Simulated scan of single mutants.
Amino acid sequence: MAVRVWMLVLVLALAACGKPPEIAAPAGVEIVPLKTYSRVESWFLLKMAGVEGVSAEHAVDTYRVTYETRPQDGEPVRASGLMALPRGVAAKRIVSFQHGTTTRREGVPSRLDVTGAAASILFAGNGYMLVAPDYLGLGDGPGVHGYYVAADHARAVTGLLAAARQLPQAPAGAVFLSGFSQGGHVSLAAMRQMETEGEAVFAAAPVAAALDIRHISLGAALEGGSPSHSLYLAYIAWGYAHHYGEPLDTALTPEYAAKVEALYGTPHSAQDIMEGLPADPREMFAPEFLDAFDGGGDHWLLARIAENGLTDWTPKAPVRLYYGAADRDVVPEEAIRAEERFRARGADVTAVNTGEVEHEGSMLAAAPMILAWLRELEGE
């Protein structure tokens, strides 16, 4: 009987959740109310997601934000992202969370996908203003998504931050950056841009971030240790070919160049894409690319991958690089080597082992650690 009563209370609580209050948008920005998560619903969703040791202290109001940003060396473009606010209290600080790889334009935070909902509950549910960009070429943004183009996605982050900071609900103070997988790379790209331009960052907490793809992750991925490696590599080749104006069939074989264009150029799930690509990633690549990679030669794709690396600068704010010891998608060496290189430059950077977990599990394990570190930095 007690279980039935509890389930009835839960169902009623979930059903009672509605839309957040309207927010007046500044010029050039559109803000659309999406959903309110009650504390009960937040608790339930965190438990279902497998995030342990975290609760939500506040109900959460979520919004889709459409704003304008300027890509590197380009004209202003529209972009979209998610914003979440704690209900009934002033936010303590802005947290910008950057999502991981998605092959679907709609699989983004502003559509309240799993990442968007979880990040909203984790951070806004504990008193922070949460913003989460969709990235250029995803969500409501036009064009092709330049997967792992550091500068463009850094500007998606800073553009959304600029829009959010115009609101009276926005707290003062430096932003806390976090993100998972591709989002870890985007987080440090944004940190580099902001600190280079003289803007302070509070701290950064990337999870499973590939920061030196050219010298670490590319070799590991070409060995095909993870079922996702062909998807990642084809995505980079496709995105870079479009972004930098290079022929895709000079990186991939003509057969796979055509197949990849069809898989990524029209909506396909990650599972569909993996089923359309070889288990051995090397089968996709043109001989001239493999010869350059194996022999230390030159190739446009290798050069572009190298220039989007993020270990040749010195972060000013503290950074923790969280990784899973059993991660095959982004090997632990990425965090460990990055820590060594950053520390050698005098930065306050620490690699944090989240345990014997694989790629997705590293984010679940890191989430309570990140929130605890943020609270520690706040002096709570």
Rank of each mutant, 00 (worst) to 15 (best):
A156R: 00
I121N: 05
P133L: 00
A154L: 13
L138Q: 09
D140R: 13
A90R: 15
H99E: 09
G159F: 06
K92S: 14
G159T: 07
S181F: 11
P168L: 08
Y128H: 14
R192M: 14
G107N: 15
G146V: 02
D113G: 14
A150N: 05
L161I: 08
A162P: 04
S110P: 02
M191C: 03
G159K: 07
N126L: 05
D134E: 05
L122R: 08
H145I: 02
A132K: 13
A154H: 05
L167T: 02
S96K: 00
A151T: 05
P142V: 05
A90P: 09
V108A: 08
E197H: 07
G116Q: 01
A190D: 08
R192H: 13
G125N: 10
A170V: 00
R155V: 02
A174Y: 11
A156F: 00
E197I: 05
P133A: 01
V114H: 07
P109D: 07
G173A: 08
G198Y: 06
G141N: 04
H153P: 00
R155N: 02
L177T: 01
H99P: 10
Q166P: 00
L136S: 02
P142N: 02
Y147C: 07
G143W: 10
E199I: 11
G173F: 07
H145Q: 01
V144K: 04
A124S: 15
A151M: 09
L188K: 02
G137L: 04
A200C: 03
P171C: 10
V95N: 05
V131K: 01
G183N: 08
S120T: 08
I121H: 04
F123K: 05
Q98Y: 00
L188P: 08
A200V: 08
P171D: 06
P171G: 09
R155P: 04
G107W: 07
G143T: 12
L138T: 10
A164F: 07
G137F: 06
F202A: 14
V108H: 08
A90D: 14
